[in-house]
Measured scan of single mutants.
Amino acid sequence: MFYPNSPQTSPQLTQIPYGQQYAMMQRQIQQPYHPFATTEPQARLYPYHYQGPIQQEQGGFITQQSTAASPQYVQMRVTPVDQSIMSGYPNQTANGSSSSSFNYNIHPQQQQQQQQQQQQLRHHAMPVGSVPLQDDRYRKQLIVNYLAPDVTSTDLHELFSRFGELDGARIIYDKQTNMSKGYGFVYFCHAEDAKEAVERMSGYEFHGKWLKVGYSTNPLNIVPSNSSPYVHAGSRGAAG
């Protein structure tokens, strides 16, 4: 039997160049792979992502010199942007860049009308829970959420009447099932009393439920100042 490094198959040491006398086997001759043993700084910083320098080929596509990437890492192929796409944008300079302001050559009167329309939209648009300043009635009506099913309009009136005089209180019921929808409205005579009720009743436990109280901004629920107070009856038909 002959071994790869046996004296019968191995040459004389004098015939082997210096430095390879003890590297006779194939696994010894093959050098191990060192990912950080390279002179390129990109490979030292990113050993798993770097795959060699990027070269520009004919046709405008950018390719990489090395083989496919590892399945664990996804390499994105980048193509140059066609400058003709950006030619339609206004205020574009000769080098292809555009300024931040756009001039669509709008007539001054049209621009003024658009600004007025935007101001009107901001004036009428009102986020949930906010209180408008032009109508004091919005500051007097509250919406009470997360009410228990057994709470009546009379219970709601008695709960909030300790903060001040009320114009009314009612629970909203479903017309088909005649069941409470879980929320109601309270109408105060003074805005200061309503503000105190919002601050003190939010998070209050009532009939096993934690109440959420806020201003009601729905104009359909506003009680006119010259109208008669609501009837605080315990029956659902009268309260709904």
Rank of each mutant, 00 (worst) to 15 (best):
S161K: 05
S100R: 11
A191T: 13
H124I: 11
Y33Q: 15
S228T: 06
K212G: 05
I222L: 06
A69V: 07
Y183L: 01
Y48I: 09
T14G: 10
E192T: 11
V128T: 11
Y138D: 02
R200H: 09
Q115I: 10
V144W: 01
F185G: 01
Q21S: 07
T177H: 08
Y104H: 12
N95M: 03
M76Y: 13
V231I: 14
A43S: 13
Q114T: 09
E40M: 06
I29S: 10
M24V: 15
S100I: 04
P149I: 10
Q113C: 09
A169K: 02
L142R: 00
V74K: 15
Y89G: 11
K140Q: 08
G208F: 08
T79W: 03
G168C: 00
E57C: 08
K212L: 02
K175N: 14
N95D: 09
D193T: 13
Y146R: 02
K140I: 01
P41Y: 09
I172N: 00
D193M: 11
N105T: 06
Q116F: 11
Q118S: 08
Q12S: 11
C189L: 05
G19P: 10
Q114L: 09
Q83N: 10
Y104W: 05
I85Q: 11
P132I: 05
S70P: 03
Y73P: 15
F102A: 09
F185T: 01
Q114C: 10
R162G: 11
D174F: 15
Q8L: 09
I54N: 12
Q115Y: 05
E158R: 12
I222D: 02
E196N: 07
Q111L: 09
H207V: 01
V151C: 05
S225I: 11
R236L: 07
G237K: 07
A23E: 12
V186K: 01
P80G: 15
Y22I: 04
F206R: 01
N103W: 05
K181L: 13
Q176Y: 15
L142S: 00
N218A: 02
M24W: 13
L159Q: 03
H124D: 04
K140D: 01
Q110E: 04
Q42H: 10
A239Y: 15
Q28R: 12
I106N: 07
N91E: 06
Q56I: 03
V144A: 01
S70G: 09
H157S: 05
G203P: 02
T152C: 09
S153N: 14
R162W: 15
R27S: 04
Y89C: 10
V131N: 11
K212P: 00
Y3A: 11
P47Q: 13
Q31F: 04
R200K: 06
P53W: 03
P224C: 06
H124C: 11
Q119V: 11
A197S: 06
M179S: 07
Y46L: 12
E57P: 08
M179D: 03
H49R: 15
Y89Q: 12
T67F: 05
P41V: 03
P17M: 13
P219W: 00
V131K: 11
Q26N: 05
Y50L: 11
V78T: 14
I172W: 00
N221D: 08
N145L: 01
Y138N: 02
Y146T: 01
N5K: 14
L147W: 00
M179P: 00
S98E: 08
G164N: 00
E205Q: 07
Y18P: 13
Y89N: 06
Q120C: 07
Q30K: 14
G19K: 15
Y46S: 14
H124L: 09
I54E: 13
F2C: 13
G234W: 13
E199N: 14
N91A: 07
G129E: 05
L121K: 10
F102H: 04
N91K: 15
I16D: 08
Y50R: 15
P219R: 00
G168V: 07
N145R: 00
G52C: 11
S70M: 03
G203E: 02
S235E: 07
Q51P: 13
A148T: 09
Q30S: 11
N226S: 07
R170A: 02
F102V: 11
D135R: 04
E165N: 14
G184H: 01
T79H: 12
P53D: 12
A125D: 05
L159G: 00
D167P: 01
K181T: 01
P7E: 05
S87Y: 03
E158F: 14
R170Q: 02
M76H: 14
Q12W: 02
A169L: 01
L133F: 15
I171Q: 01
N221T: 10
Q20N: 14
R77A: 06
F2S: 13
T217L: 03
A125V: 10
A239H: 09
S227L: 13
G60N: 12
G59S: 07
I16A: 12
N95S: 06
F36G: 10
G203C: 12
T79L: 04
A197Y: 00
P35I: 02
A69P: 10
A43G: 12
L147F: 02
S97R: 11
M86N: 12
D167S: 02
Q119R: 13
P4Q: 11
F163V: 03
H34W: 07
P32E: 04
Y230H: 06
S180V: 01
I143H: 01
F36Y: 13
V78Q: 06
G208M: 10
S153K: 15
A194M: 00
Q113T: 08
Q119D: 07
H157K: 10
Q109S: 08
T93L: 06
T63H: 09
Q115A: 09
Q56H: 11
Q119H: 11
H49P: 10
N145Q: 01
P4W: 02
Q65L: 03
V223G: 03
I85P: 11
Q114K: 08
Q92N: 08
Q31L: 04
R170E: 00
D150P: 11
E205V: 15
P32I: 06
Y89E: 05
R170W: 01
N91H: 07
I106Y: 11
H232P: 06
V131R: 12
Q176R: 10
K181M: 10
E158C: 15
Q114Y: 12
T93S: 09
L13R: 14
Y22N: 15
N103K: 12
G59Y: 05
M25W: 05
N178D: 07
L156M: 14
H34M: 04
P41S: 08
I29N: 13
E199P: 07
T39V: 08
A169W: 03
L159A: 03
Q65H: 09
G59L: 04
Q30L: 04
S87N: 13
P35Q: 10
Y48V: 08
K181H: 02
T217N: 09
P35L: 03
Y146N: 02
G19Q: 11
G237F: 15
S98H: 15
A148N: 12
P90E: 14
R44D: 03
A37K: 15
P219L: 01
T63D: 12
D82C: 12
R44M: 03
L159V: 12
H157E: 04
P80E: 04
